[in-house]
Simulated scan of single mutants.
Amino acid sequence: MFSPEGPSLRELAVQAFSSVERGYDLLAPKFDHTPYRTSDRILDATSAALRPFGPFDDGLDVCCGTGAGLRVLRPLCRGRVTGVDFSAGMLAEARRAHPDAEWIRVDARRPPFAAEFDLAVSFGAFGHFLATDRPALFTGVHRALRSGGLFAFPVFAPPRISSRSYWVPAGFDAAMRIRNAVWRPPFVMYYRTFPLRAVRAELTAAGFTVRTTVLPGFGRRPDGAPYARLVVARKD
């Protein structure tokens, strides 16, 4: 699961019994050597899908982690590129890897921006938000964008209930709920709490016009539905 440069089981255990912020501070130096880092394949597919909508001026990576999203923003944005995250450890790694970008420690539900960006992206972060947090998150991104700006992120079709890919994340979510019921501080990380129908409605309520586009190269399910889509939400 991890490369030799990745975290040990002991380090993962310490992270799991920390808060989300503290856990990612601890994981940050080795994060890019774990499967949790968004793959270049997903980033490149997102960049290709967004290219017809651009070019853009200023770009924002929401919950940026160690800065992988710059692989998308840099080719598409002509102006400044900014990443926001609440983990100081993740931001320190992002600064080391990309010193020419702007990195700000902030709660993504309350970003300190007003009409400053033309494109916002996010990768692999939504499992750290409870459903009750999403409206504030989407409203904050909407406020940060200029009129006509886009908020984009990939989503993947749920696996078949008969598959291992269905039961592994379902089991993880169940274990996380038990952990959070008996241990403090909570560690919010759930894989199956981001249904596209609900997310689309919440984005619309925040003021976005929402569409999706297929990300090619990830195949289709037996029923013909694509495995991967890009949500493209435009600020009206």
Rank of each mutant, 00 (worst) to 15 (best):
Q15D: 00
E5D: 10
G23Y: 06
R51E: 15
S87C: 06
Y36I: 15
E93K: 13
S19G: 15
V84H: 02
R51K: 14
L9H: 02
A92Y: 06
D44R: 13
H33D: 09
D25L: 09
P75M: 13
D32A: 13
C64S: 12
A94E: 02
D58G: 05
P55G: 13
F56L: 13
D44P: 00
F53E: 14
S18R: 06
G89Y: 08
R51A: 15
F31G: 02
L43E: 00
L12G: 10
G79R: 09
A97I: 01
H33C: 09
T66W: 11
T34N: 07
D61W: 00
S18W: 02
H33E: 07
S19L: 04
L70P: 00
L50W: 06
T66K: 07
G79K: 07
A97K: 03
L60N: 02
L9C: 04
L60A: 04
V14M: 05
G23Q: 02
T82N: 04
E21V: 09
E11M: 09
R95C: 14
I42N: 01
L12W: 00
R41H: 12
D61G: 12
E21F: 02
G6T: 08
E93V: 15
S39M: 01
L76V: 05
A68W: 07
S87M: 13
I42V: 14
E11T: 08
R71A: 08
P75D: 10
F56P: 04
L26V: 03
R10N: 11
T66S: 07
D44A: 14
V84L: 07
L27M: 10
R41I: 02
R37M: 03
G67H: 01
D25E: 08
P75S: 12
G79L: 06
A92R: 11
V14I: 08
E93H: 02
A97Y: 01
T82I: 07
F17E: 09
A92M: 14
G23N: 03
R71I: 01
R96M: 02
L43M: 08
S39R: 03
L12T: 06
S47Q: 12
A88V: 12
A16R: 12
V62K: 05
S39G: 15
G6L: 07
C63Q: 05
A97N: 02
A92H: 03
G59L: 12
Y24M: 10
H33W: 05
D85T: 09
A97R: 13
P7I: 11
P52Y: 09
A28N: 04
P75N: 11
G65F: 06
C77Y: 00
R80Q: 07
Y36L: 15
C64D: 09
F17T: 14
D57A: 15
G69I: 15
F31W: 15
A68I: 12
G6C: 10
V20L: 10
G83A: 08
L43A: 15
D58E: 13
V14P: 00
C63T: 03
R96K: 15
T34H: 11
A49H: 04
E93P: 06
G89M: 01
T34L: 14
V62A: 07
S8Q: 01
R78N: 09
V20Q: 03
R80A: 15
G67R: 00
D58T: 06
R10S: 11
A49Y: 06
V72Q: 05
V81M: 10
S39T: 11
G69F: 03
L9T: 13
C64M: 10
F53D: 08
G65I: 14
A28R: 00
